[in-house]
């Protein structure tokens, strides 16, 4: 992700007991990461158990006061990030990256909102990557019982499938299929005891791993939830101004229900525009200098809640006269 001198932020989220801390413990053992990474742990309740487990990061770990990160501590997170900036610029403890570990029940979108809209933070930090840990053994149960995990999965750029050593192949396949259908654009990485490549906390550019299948148009609806997804591909470069008009209007009217929008769009420039949004929040779109792969497919994914995807399809196809392109409903699969 283009940083322009901004400090990168990695958000680690996931259900209670899904292995966030174990993952972070492993990642922070890597000396090159540990030396220049600050960690903000969002402790739930009074006992900072997670904090004491993260020994490697103890010096720079700041406990947020006030419980859940999304409900009470938005200002706290803002303050902590500002204090970290002060510590960095005063030379007290320089760092390049911040890892924010959320509570198991946290909705990650207020964190993105705080960072992307705060007048100071938006110029000094960039959200580089959102990682969600999903328990392969109990994931299906959690998906049924905890609605917040659906939000955490849809927001993720990378999903770490934990406890793959103790789950059965059926459980593994079931959760994998479910995650892929909930968030077709994420990278899924299996892990045992949090052992993964520590550098996964960097860079969320997984856009070239997607493959557009034109022959199988199918809006996907998920059992046990009112979440559904739809993908489009575009045959010609689209008018970026007109697209901005349509999407800003859509998010204004239905932002809370659009859980995720992600796309790589050919707008007639040398490279594509990478679009990434969560509810009302759209990351500053990246205008790439060139296409990341030979596959110059332009695509757009919507993951929505309580919206009939057929309506989105109809609206986009009606607006395509402004977009100067032809949108086709398609299916996206991740290439491994």
């Amino acid at each position: 992700m283009k940083a322009h001198g901004k400090k990168a932020i990695t958000i680690v989220t996931g259900c209670l007991g899904s292995g966030k801390t174990t993952l972070l413990q492993h990642i922070l053992k890597e000396p090159s990461i540990n030396n220049n990474t600050a960690v903000i742990v969002n402790e739930y309740g009074k006992i900072g158990l997670d904090h004491h487990l993260l020994r490697q990061a103890e010096e720079r770990t700041i406990l947020l006061k006030g419980g859940c990160i999304c409900c009470n501590s938005r200002a706290d997170l803002e303050e902590e990030l500002k204090e970290l900036l002060y510590a960095d610029e005063s030379g007290e403890s320089p760092f390049e990256r911040v890892v924010i570990e959320t509570t198991g029940m946290a909705d990650p979108s207020p964190i993105l909102f705080t960072i992307l809209t705060n007048p100071l933070l938006q110029h000094r930090y960039i959200v580089d990557c959102v990682i969600t840990t999903v328990d392969a053994k109990n994931g299906m149960l959690q998906l049924q019982n905890n609605p917040e995990i659906i939000k955490q999965i849809t927001v993720a750029d990378k999903i770490i499938l934990t406890k793959t050593d103790i789950c059965s192949p059926e459980e593994h396949d079931a959760i994998l299929t479910h995650i892929q259908s909930l968030n077709p654009s994420c990278v899924i990485i299996p892990a045992v005891y949090g052992k993964v490549d520590p550098f996964i906390i960097q860079e969320a550019s997984n856009v070239d791993r997607l493959k557009v299948i034109h022959s199988l148009p199918s809006p996907v609806t998920h059992p046990n939830s009112n979440v559904s997804s739809i993908s489009f591909s575009f045959s010609q470069p689209l008018d970026w101004t007109a697209f901005g008009l349509w999407l800003s209007m859509l998010l204004h009217a239905n932002g809370e229900k659009v859980m995720r929008v992600k796309g790589m769009l050919d707008v007639g420039e040398d490279g594509p525009v990478v679009l990434n949004g969560v509810q009302h929040i759209i990351h500053p779109p990246q205008h790439l200098k060139q296409w990341p792969s030979h596959n110059r497919e332009s695509y757009l994914i919507f993951i929505v809640r309580d919206i009939d995807t057929a309506l989105i399809e109809r609206s986009l196809k009606t607006f395509q006269q402004f977009l100067h392109t032809v949108a086709t409903t398609c299916e996206l699969t991740t290439i491994y």
């Binding site: 209007m249 009217a253 919206i307 309506l311 109809r314």
Partner: peptide
């Protein structure tokens, strides 16, 4: 009143005009 690009009547009007 609220506007919505998913509103069927708006989409009908756009299609009709085009």
């Amino acid at each position: 009143y609220p506007i919505d690009p998913l509103d069927g009547s708006l989409l009908d009007k756009i299609t009709e005009r085009s």
